[in-house]
């Protein structure tokens, strides 16, 4: 393979863009799990809401689905994030007062319901036919600059969210969340409104996930029911965060890039196998990714980049 060929460059750009979109998802999940210890088994729900909101708000009128709002991309994103945040707020209000397992079960439920709505409400989402002709920012530029510019946009967003998440991690808000995560009884005892803090982390995380959904809709220019696929959206993101290191924003980004590269590189390899083996090996890949999660959980529970106390504390002169 000629590494200077246009095909390979495009592949690298695609790899980077997808890694970036997954990094946004991972940073969102880190807000919920890494910061606050909240188990979200329905990442796909918030991702899909972001994706469909962005698609419906920006596409031209179509007989297949709701549309014709013709909003510019930048205006659609905040709406997508707000919708997702509102859903997270509702589900969080109900579940965050009780034990963690209930949130896990309820998020599975919300993801299923969103999946059903997307599949069944054709007037809204075009169902299994999917929404096409979604605009992608910078697509008027010549190749490969259009793809490169979009990659740049994704990278800038990852950097921005990373910066904000790091600030949050070091802030009193982040400290309170960690205290609640490690012992909600102790945190409640020192007067923290445990439910309120958790709700804020859950809603913020869901909004970031919606942004990832919107980015993905614009990137693929097409949106179908695969956006709600629990394997590709929910499960893979969990593996990324656990492998990268939950509670560490750099770990979230590293995990997203690493797992996505492994995932798509192995796909590239297995696609060269004879026909029947392509489908078989795709299950083996899922099996191995599941095994990887188990090994990391058991042997390297903290991930590649373990959680650290915020820099603020690190930089204090050490006594003695």
């Amino acid at each position: 393979m000629d590494i200077f060929s246009a095909g390979f460059l495009n592949y690298l750009i695609a790899l980077g863009t997808m890694s970036g979109i997954y990094a946004v998802l991972c940073l969102g999940l880190n807000l919920q799990w890494g910061f606050a210890g909240l188990f979200n088994a329905g990442i796909a729900a918030f991702f899909a809401i972001g994706a469909y909101a962005a698609a419906i708000l920006t596409t031209p009128e179509s007989p297949n689905h709701l549309g014709g709002f013709g909003l510019p991309v930048v205006a659609a994103w905040p709406v997508a994030m707000l919708l997702s945040g509102a859903l997270a707020w509702a589900i969080g209000r109900i579940c965050l007062k009780v034990q963690g397992d209930y949130l896990a079960m309820a998020t599975i439920g919300i993801a299923e319901v969103i999946r059903l709505v997307i599949k069944n409400e054709e007037w809204l989402t075009a169902g299994t036919r999917g929404i096409s002709n979604i605009a992608r920012p910078f697509e008027a530029l010549p190749t490969p600059w259009n793809a490169l510019a979009f990659l740049g946009l994704v990278a800038a967003l990852v950097a921005g969210i990373y910066w904000a998440a790091e600030r949050a991690w070091a802030s009193p808000w982040g400290r309170a969340l960690r205290a609640i995560r490690d012992s909600d009884v102790a945190a409640a005892a020192i007067g923290k409104d445990v439910t309120q803090f958790r709700l804020e982390a859950f809603v913020l995380g869901a909004m970031v996930m919606a942004l990832a959904g919107a980015l993905s809709a614009h990137y693929f220019k097409f949106l179908g029911t695969t956006a709600t696929e629990p394997m590709m959206v929910t499960f893979l993101v969990w593996v990324m965060l656990i492998v990268g290191g939950s509670g560490n924003n750099r770990g979230a980004i590293l995990g997203a890039a690493l797992i996505w590269v492994i995932w798509s590189a192995t796909e590239l390899l297995t696609n060269r196998l004879p026909g029947e083996w392509i489908t078989r090996t795709s299950y083996i890949r899922v099996l191995l990714i599941g095994l990887l999660l188990q090994i990391v959980l058991q042997r390297f529970g903290k991930g590649l980049l373990p959680e650290r106390p915020p820099r603020m504390i690190d930089d204090r002169p050490k006594s003695g």
Binding site: F39, G100, D101, A104, L293
Partner: peptide, 22 residues
């Protein structure tokens, strides 16, 4: 903590399913 076991069971879920598909 129980929630770590939930993550493990999440992984087992995918492994079981892909093994069945395989």
């Amino acid at each position: 903590a129980g929630i770590v076991t939930v993550i493990a069971s999440f992984g087992v879920m995918l492994m079981l399913r892909s093994a069945i598909q395989l």
